[in-house]
Design a protein around this nucleic acid. Structure first.
Lengths: 145, 145
DNA sequence: CCTTGCTCCTGTAGTTGCTACAGACCCTAT
DNA sequence: ATAGGGTCTGTAGCAACTACAGGAGCAAGG
């Protein structure tokens, strides 16, 4: 049985990584940039984590999955840390992010439409003439008329 | 009238930037990474561009607008440079890229749905209780039932 | 002719969000 | 005791640029 040096529910960095699905190195990175607190250390200097760390990193991971940037996550966390957050405040940040997500979707859908339309006109043959190359060379976006 | 040191249709880097909409520094970057050729120089070492450069950079800019990565653009350009490209080959690269674009759209639409559903449940009030924070804390994605 | 102010040159560092390595420690099991 | 892992640190790398510092050139006004 491994000693835990008296630290309650002491998890190693690799344990935290497995529990949260976060990359091992990324944990150290988040500590460096201040998203995660510096954890207590074992006498040999090894990081020891508890349930609070698991919860915080899980929060970060889920925010990441929703596409929040690190700055946005930092903002959300500091609101929660201050303990003075309101649903209205959080909602506003969520809405702002949603708008960014929707803008990205629109951009990608534009690209998708142009690519799909253009590729649909490709012969796929061994000829050098190619509608997609024409679009790239001339900027002419073929109309579907 | 500024001398052009005998270089036909000699454009300065800033001219090329304006003509193509490319950032000034990015031109130098593209030369460094080999997307653009090293241009001829004036006696004082200043870059001098011609219409071929304008066309190549325009090609790159349009590919960029369509979301092609630099490696994809490099591939397209080298096919054209070899002069041995076929429509089938170009179409395949276009299709591969289209698949990537569509995957990104799907990912973002998932995010959008979760965010929109969750935010719709926010009271927007001064209460600390917040559906969005709950999702981030628990991973519970609210159902619209 | 000379200065003023802009452009251009180079190399390098910063951005975002990680990821991966090298080389040194430490810990566990046999 | 020693072999193998895991952990520690600092640092470099990725995409794809962007920006800056410090020096040189160049065109025009006085």
């Amino acid at each position: 049985m491994p000693s835990d040096h008296g630290v309650a529910s002491a998890l190693k960095r690799s344990d935290l990584a497995k529990l949260t699905g976060c990359n091992l190195e990324t944990i150290r990175y988040y500590e460096g940039v201040g998203l995660m607190p510096d954890p207590p250390r074992s006498p040999a200097g090894h990081r020891r984590y508890g349930t609070a760390h698991v919860e915080r990193l899980s929060f970060i991971m889920r925010a990441r999955e929703l596409g929040f940037t690190m700055e946005e996550i930092r903002g959300l966390l500091s609101m929660v840390d201050r303990g003075s957050h309101t649903c209205g405040e959080v909602e506003k940040r969520g809405r702002d992010h949603l708008n960014v997500v929707r803008a990205k979707i629109r951009d990608l859908q534009n690209i998708e439409a142009i690519l799909a339309d253009t590729i649909a006109k490709c012969s796929g043959s061994d000829a050098p003439e190619c509608p997609l190359l024409n679009v790239l060379s001339d900027g002419a976006v073929a109309k579907a008329d």
